[in-house]
Amino acid sequence: MEIIGSGFLARHLAVLETDHPHVTALAAGVSRTIDVGQSAYQREAALLYETIDDCRRLDRTLLFFSTASASMYGGVGAPGREDGPVYPQSPYGHHKLALETVVRLSGVRHLILRLGHVLGPDQPAHQMLPILIGAVRSGRVEVHRGACRDLIDVADVVSAVDALLRADALDEVVNVASGVAVPAESIVDHLELRLGGPLERRFVDRSSRYEVSLDKLSELTRGKAGQPFPEDYYKGVIDACLESAPGS
């Protein structure tokens, strides 16, 4: 696998470098959902166009990463399925959906993966969990009442990628997530339990409930990925991140 990028996801995909020699994984671009300038979106789009040209010229399969977060599935009526309607809730969601369309219409072999909130060692400081860890350690945290997040370990993402490519899943859009909608309050509760208190909570009404279907992932991999995760799966994922976090 050729991996374009050097960030969090790209580093973890490196275990597949000697596998899937026909695949180019575009693991670079915008990795935050807020406070993103238009120039960052334009750079990611330009890199995608360049990568598509290379894949067409070299007859390679493009692996493109999109989002299965509330930015894509958080709208009222979105079923969380790849073949269902989506109502992007942010510029980030609109951007990813637009790039999905570019890939689908490009004519190159491709696999588009919509990822949940991917957690793991050495995450960028601007992503959700490192921000929450810092807030809880400071003793003050803003909690979005009615919000939820689908959390998945980066190792499980890599396993799903491997399973899909080994199953020759092509020209598909596939959710890769845990399928468990974890309330924001529960995430903060677990961090407080692990990191200690006291903790001052400021509640903000910012509902963003959503579900992510794993039916297609399970079907395409014949059950090797996409199996139901336990309801408390997120706790183990968070614990693993805390063990590797600076100052742990």
Score class of each variant (00 low, 15 high):
residue 71 S to L: 00
residue 88 P to Q: 08
residue 156 D to R: 07
residue 80 G to P: 06
residue 86 V to K: 09
residue 93 G to K: 01
residue 122 D to H: 15
residue 92 Y to T: 04
residue 91 P to Q: 08
residue 115 L to R: 03
residue 99 L to F: 02
residue 80 G to N: 01
residue 164 L to W: 05
residue 96 K to S: 07
residue 111 L to K: 11
residue 83 D to G: 08
residue 129 L to M: 09
residue 170 L to D: 15
residue 101 T to V: 06
residue 94 H to Y: 14
residue 142 E to H: 11
residue 138 S to C: 03
residue 102 V to I: 15
residue 161 V to E: 00
residue 77 G to C: 09
residue 146 G to W: 06
residue 114 R to H: 03
residue 166 R to I: 09
residue 154 V to M: 00
residue 144 H to M: 13
residue 105 L to P: 00
residue 125 A to M: 13
residue 72 M to V: 14
residue 127 Q to D: 11
residue 80 G to D: 04
residue 81 R to A: 12
residue 109 R to Y: 00
residue 138 S to W: 09
residue 74 G to W: 04
residue 165 L to A: 10
residue 90 S to C: 08
residue 118 V to I: 15
residue 112 I to L: 04
residue 104 R to H: 12
residue 141 V to T: 06
residue 124 P to M: 03
residue 162 D to W: 07
residue 108 V to F: 07
residue 89 Q to T: 15
residue 86 V to W: 00
residue 132 L to G: 02
residue 115 L to D: 00
residue 100 E to Q: 13
residue 90 S to A: 08
residue 163 A to S: 12
residue 81 R to M: 11
residue 154 V to H: 08
residue 130 P to E: 09
residue 171 D to K: 10
residue 73 Y to E: 07
residue 62 L to D: 01
residue 139 G to F: 12
residue 106 S to Q: 01
residue 166 R to P: 07
residue 93 G to R: 01
residue 91 P to K: 07
residue 136 V to D: 02
residue 133 I to L: 10
residue 124 P to E: 07
residue 150 D to M: 02
residue 143 V to H: 12
residue 160 A to W: 05
residue 147 A to W: 02
residue 123 Q to N: 00
residue 67 T to Y: 02
residue 75 G to F: 02
residue 166 R to D: 15
residue 127 Q to F: 05
residue 153 D to G: 06
residue 109 R to D: 15
residue 125 A to C: 12
residue 134 G to M: 12
residue 117 H to L: 12
residue 81 R to K: 15
residue 62 L to E: 10
residue 131 I to F: 13
residue 82 E to L: 04
residue 160 A to M: 00
residue 155 A to Q: 14
residue 94 H to C: 11
residue 99 L to Y: 05
residue 99 L to K: 01
residue 168 D to L: 09
residue 165 L to W: 09
residue 166 R to C: 09
residue 157 V to H: 09
residue 101 T to M: 12
residue 152 I to S: 05
residue 106 S to F: 07
residue 98 A to P: 07
residue 169 A to D: 09
residue 107 G to R: 07
residue 161 V to G: 05
residue 143 V to A: 10
residue 160 A to F: 02
residue 89 Q to K: 12
residue 133 I to A: 01
residue 132 L to A: 01
residue 169 A to N: 07
residue 102 V to L: 15
residue 98 A to K: 11
residue 140 R to K: 14
residue 159 S to W: 03
residue 90 S to P: 09
residue 105 L to H: 15
residue 112 I to N: 08
residue 81 R to V: 05
residue 130 P to F: 03
residue 120 G to F: 01
residue 145 R to G: 11
residue 100 E to Y: 10
residue 63 L to M: 14
residue 156 D to A: 13
residue 151 L to H: 06
residue 72 M to A: 13
residue 142 E to M: 13
